[in-house]
């Protein structure tokens, strides 16, 4: 299975994502730079975490308007799977590929810890390797992960099962509305989440709870 990783100035989790995708897919991902207007034919495009463009203006706002994101949007419209983690989630939201907004953590503090996630929808290509409502471990590291959507949008995505991950067992680290940690688009091929599943994929990480997400997306057996 072929993958691509989007590179932008200021991202710092790109190498983690590349390592995870290499281990799980068996092949090193293609990398695409912010000015690239074409993305090779791949099965999964990953937008890693970090602080693209220094979080200037709003987190992900400048990156979302970069040429490579227009190419990502074109691929997404064609059904290619896209996953955005942390800053990648913020970029997908700013680009309008996912609804809502990610705001400053309610605590005003950067949080770097492990949380518990409930798989709120196990019926997506990304989460088919999990059991419904399964609780998994996952690290988070962010300052602006406080998901917000207006009441109509929130009712719509909740009603359509598009909330894919929720912070569980009182571990909501950022004040996100309805404990939302990750959402998917209406077609089910674009996922954004604040936690870092790519950092929990093998024993050396102290666990592999995040691995099934990439295995599901890539259709590789566990």
């Amino acid at each position: 299975m072929k993958t691509a990783v989007v590179l932008l100035p200021g991202l710092n989790r790109d190498r983690d994502m590349i390592a995870a995708l290499t281990k799980i897919s068996g092949t090193a991902p293609a990398t695409v730079w912010q000015t690239d207007t074409e993305i090779p034919d791949v099965d999964l495009i990953a937008i890693p975490g970090g602080f693209s463009f220094g979080d200037y203006l709003r987190c992900g706002a400048i990156a979302a308007r970069s040429p490579v994101m227009r190419a990502v949007a074109e691929k997404a419209a064609k059904g290619v799977m896209v996953v955005g983690v942390c800053n990648g989630f913020q970029i997908l939201v700013e680009a309008g590929l996912l609804p809502g907004a990610l705001m400053r953590n309610a605590s005003l503090k950067f949080v770097c810890r492990e949380v518990k996630l409930q798989v709120a929808n196990a019926n997506t290509a990304f989460t088919r390797g999990y059991q419904p409502n399964q609780i998994i471990r996952c690290p988070v590291a962010h300052h602006d992960g406080n998901y917000f959507a207006d009441a109509d949008t929130l009712a719509r995505i909740e009603g359509e099962g598009r909330v894919v991950f929720r912070y569980a067992e009182g571990t909501n680290p950022n004040g996100s509305i309805n404990d939302i940690a990750g959402i998917i688009n209406d077609k089910g091929n674009v996922l954004g989440l604040m936690p870092h599943p790519e950092n929990l994929i093998e024993a050396a990480h102290g666990g592999n709870d995040g691995r099934a997400l990439f295995e599901g997306a890539l259709g590789v057996a566990a």
């Binding site: 203006l57 709003r58 706002a61 308007r65 700013e94 609804p99 809502g100 907004a101 705001m103 917000f148 959507a149 207006d150």
Partner: peptide, 9 residues
């Protein structure tokens, strides 16, 4: 609309 404001919030 395109950049300076995020009209969601």
């Amino acid at each position: 609309d395109k950049l300076l404001a995020n009209t969601v919030i």
